[in-house]
């Protein structure tokens, strides 16, 4: 029986259906559905995990909102509880859980690491490193810390593993890249065009930043992935779950809006219409460099897993 049906049955039976309270029948149904007992989790431990998840996210609702039983069931139904209990079983050191995890995810983990690094050797090293980390060889404050504990069932466990691998790889790449001399140094910008003064350039930079900042998050994400990361429309569309045409249309709309905003900001900065138009014809390399710095100023050193805090 599906958890949602169980919750509905529980509500219809009027058994502990108070808002905000964990329904025992719902918990038991979920516990059996995800075979938590196979990984050594008792129903009490399972209920505690569910309570932690629900408390951390308030059943996916806004703060202060009390979830009904139906909302609770919907929230848990949206989670990958089977993967979550397996991860918790592995984190707790359950042998059966590890055997199952290794048999199911070991090879996909290596393939994902090879795909991410683009190298068989680097990929295997990356997978082995993460595997050791998952096994809990690292300790923090004298206690074994398993990254699997940070997995809370939102999204698949395999996706979580892939994303974790990608994080490790990107962080490693960006860290080691900083230690190497830059091979590709941006060529110094040419002398400003006579018609574009330094004042106009500063105004233009300010206007661009303002215009970009005023764009909605999705439009800025589109601009960054398309113009800075060089991703294709198809890749962006897959990431957002929309059609390519939608991405293209949104990109066109975003660039048009930014251009209008830049012109408006320039005029507001004291330039007349014609001077603002001329300022837009300035050397774009100046603006590109600034925009990259603006959008890619991510601090990898300060990266901390929220779950690890």
């Amino acid at each position: 029986m599906a958890p949602t049906e169980s919750a509905a049955n529980a509500m219809s039976a009027g058994i502990d259906a108070r808002p905000g309270a964990m329904n025992r029948i719902l918990v038991e149904e979920l516990w059996r559905a995800c075979e938590a007992s196979s990984w050594g989790l008792s129903d009490d431990e399972f209920e505690q995990i569910l309570v932690d998840l629900a408390t951390a996210q308030n059943f996916g609702l806004a703060e202060g909102v009390v979830a009904t039983l139906h909302q609770q069931a919907a929230f848990f139904h949206g989670l990958c509880l089977a993967d979550m209990v397996l991860a918790r079983g592995c984190a707790s050191g359950n042998e059966r859980a590890w055997e199952h995890f290794v048999g199911k995810y070991r090879q996909p983990l290596i393939r994902a690491a090879v795909a991410i690094t683009g190298s068989e050797t680097l990929g295997r090293d990356l997978a082995d490193q993460l595997y050791a980390e998952l096994y809990g060889l690292t300790e923090r404050d004298g206690a074994r810390r398993c990254p699997l504990l940070s997995y809370r069932g939102r999204g698949s466990l395999m996706g979580w593993l892939r994303t974790t691998l990608a994080q490790r790889h990107v962080d490693h790449y960006r860290r080691t890249r900083r230690e190497e001399p830059l091979e590709e140094v941006d060529a110094p910008a040419d002398d400003p065009a006579p018609q574009t003064t330094a004042h106009e350039l500063s105004l233009l930079e300010l206007a661009v930043k303002e215009a970009v900042a005023k764009q909605p998050a999705e439009e800025r994400y589109l601009l960054a992935t398309y113009y800075l990361d060089g991703q294709t429309l198809k890749q962006i569309a897959q990431a957002l779950g929309v059609h390519e045409a939608t991405v293209s249309r949104k990109l066109q709309r975003a660039t048009g809006a930014i251009r209008k905003l830049v012109l408006k900001n320039l005029e507001r900065g004291g330039l007349d219409r014609r001077a603002a138009q001329d300022a837009l014809g300035a050397d774009p390399r100046d603006l590109d460099v600034n925009l990259k710095k603006l959008l890619q100023n991510s601090q990898t050193e300060a990266f901390q897993e929220q779950a690890a805090r």
């Binding site: 996909p108 393939r111 994902a112 690491a113 795909a115 991410i116 395999m158 996706g159 892939r162 994303t163 691998l165 990608a166 994080q167 790889h169 990107v170 962080d171 960006r174 998050a217 999705e218 439009e219 800025r220 994400y221 601009l223 960054a224 992935t225 800075l228 990361d229 991703q231 890749q235 897959q238 990431a239 603006l294 959008l295 890619q296 100023n297 991510s298 990898t300 990266f303």
Partner: peptide, 22 residues
């Protein structure tokens, strides 16, 4: 966050590529 974080965009892109390879 992704709009301003190239690192996380790269992570998402790499993870998606790995999923497609799988």
């Amino acid at each position: 966050h992704l709009a301003v974080c190239g690192r996380c965009r790269q992570v998402v892109a790499l993870a998606r590529e790995a999923a497609e390879a799988e």
